[in-house]
Design a protein around this nucleic acid. Structure first.
Lengths: 242, 242
DNA sequence: GACTTGAGTTGGTTA
DNA sequence: TAACCAAGTCAAGTC
């Protein structure tokens, strides 16, 4: 990892064109030659970058022979860069040009491999917990299966209610209109099957936008708020019994 | 901007839980106290991070009084960190703890404000090109207008075909099921207007997923693959005539 | 300020 | 390998 702090400007040309006026910024160049440009603001996303696989060329401009320039066409005489980094994508014509005007720091570190991130609490976990605690959708409910296959993709959970009627459950972390549309498609399709009909729909999520709730209820679906911590807690309790 | 290179581990607790085993990494701490953790691999996304607004606390552990630890429960005796950074989100209970075991470098730079990125967009171009090359949807087609307004939002392009019948076009870079749903809603609404009906639908994109294609064709829509480079080329050719 | 949609999305899982 | 889906998505525009 090479870390450069410098006054720089950048031009990206690829699926879009983007330019970065001169300013003091931080550049990270990874072992795979990918380059990231950061400023003080913004979230984790760099202002501009080049993703691997790519190739970096470093050009040192000649420092001399510039008196003619001052006598030139009178343009906003941008000072000549002391260094130019050109990063080109290997598999496309994307190019990122970075001009460095003044380098405050330029250091290299070998970080070695990284063991990577371990995550817990993603949508998959919500699905697993709800499948194992299926009575959260109503007493007497039974799990049919997770990822119940249909022609238009798998339903997150298929279950039956106390009356033995089928219930299709769509699970989201954040429930929006898209999720309701998705559930609608599944239910419509499943209800064409006389062996399954009637199939009820449940829209389950940690949070549900008001608009999505209205739409879901208008279509006869039940909305269910999932509390991750509570579900995890219930899971632990269950394990503790054994 | 503070730049730290160190052996570190991290624990994030928020909407999900994520942990990062010890390794040599780069930390960036921005002026707003947001913190990013990078390794050599991956794209522009950090392994772990805390977004602003947040507050950073730096804890210097006492270096002494640790002989008892070695005689402890025999756990995988992790060496004590020389420094702990705790970043807490201001508006939620999200917390990111970073333990530093060995610091290779720790430097601070004042970058100042950044003028920001100037972008020139993409989907917008697809729309513009198709509007100007409307016969790509069929000979004799005429443009009615881009961003044709309806009660549920603007249709990307409204046109007429060789028979003078209306055609609503939904444009995406990558055509998925969502886009088909969107087009469905527009066509359903527009076909209620006797002055417009019948309104045909075209689903146009650089790429269309097989499922989306099936759904679109099932609903009587035409799928159209857009070649960005070809359209841009045609545009240049047209300009060259003048 | 909440909601929607696109992104140079990125990243993971499965067929 | 390709397609599909979720993301601590982020960010921009709209209502």
């Amino acid at each position: 990892m090479r870390i450069i702090v410098a006054d720089c400007s950048a031009e990206y040309s690829g699926r879009l064109t983007a330019s970065l006026p001169p300013a003091k910024r931080v550049l990270l160049i990874k072992a795979d030659s990918s380059l990231l440009i950061f400023s003080e603001l913004g979230s984790y996303k760099p202002l501009n970058w080049m993703a691997a696989p790519c190739t970096l060329k470093e050009i040192e401009p000649e420092p001399a022979a510039e008196p003619a320039e001052a006598a030139g066409a009178g343009e906003t005489a941008e000072p000549a860069p002391v260094k130019v980094l050109r990063v080109a994508a290997d598999k496309s014509s994307d190019i990122l040009d970075v001009k460095l005007y003044h380098v405050y720091s330029d250091a290299q570190y070998d970080l070695g491999e990284d063991p990577g991130l371990i995550k817990e609490g993603v949508e998959d976990h919500l699905q697993r917990y709800l499948a194992e605690q299926i009575e959260r959708i109503g007493e007497g409910a039974k799990l049919v299966r997770r990822e119940y296959p249909t022609a238009i993709g798998p339903v997150d959970i298929m279950a039956t209610d106390a009356n033995g009627e089928h219930v299709a459950i769509e699970i989201k972390r954040h429930g929006g209109i898209d999720g309701v549309e998705q559930l609608t498609r599944y239910c419509e399709l499943l209800n064409r099957d006389p062996l399954l009909a009637p199939v009820h729909g449940i829209f389950a999520a940690q949070t549900i936008t008001p608009q999505a709730r209205v739409l879901a209820e208008d279509r006869g679906f039940t909305c269910l708020i999932l509390d991750y911590d509570e579900m995890r807690g219930a899971e632990s309790d269950e394990l503790r019994l054994f």
